[in-house]
């Protein structure tokens, strides 16, 4: 497998996430599409880390190059988990006030 397979897969997943954010009105589904975009970036980071590792081991067999990319994915997952907990709390609070998760009701800042 070459890197282009993974790049095109990640770009396709990211675009599907963008389409979901733009076309859906349900706040929870929009949030899930953001998670999908984060995951496509994670996949691409792992693929690039393995590509870099293969290039580095050609020069030095004991090289550990590429570890940083996988740790980045780990930290992205940490931030995503924190983001989800706060975001879902905001959705629950909004549902308590408006009895709906429709984003079209959230236009009070416009007026």
């Amino acid at each position: 497998m070459t890197i282009q397979h993974y790049i095109f897969l990640s770009v396709a997943l990211f675009s599907i996430g963008i389409i979901g954010v733009l076309t859906r009105r349900n706040l929870i589904i929009i949030f899930m599409c953001v998670e999908l975009m984060l995951n496509s970036v994670n996949l691409l980071l792992v693929a690039f880390s393995k590509m870099h590792h293969l290039a580095a081991t050609a020069a030095d067999a004991a090289s550990k190059a590429g570890t940083d990319g996988q740790l980045f994915v780990f930290f992205i997952m940490v931030v995503a988990a924190a983001e989800v907990s706060v975001g879902l709390a905001i959705i629950v609070m909004m549902y308590r006030n408006t009895h709906s998760v429709d984003v079209n009701f959230l236009n009070r800042l416009k007026h």
């Binding site: 497998m1 070459t2 393995k50």
Partner: peptide, 13 residues
């Protein structure tokens, strides 16, 4: 784009 990946082997992960 043509660069190969290390599939199935490698212990960095």
């Amino acid at each position: 784009m043509r660069q190969e990946l290390m599939m199935k082997t490698g212990d960095i992960g």
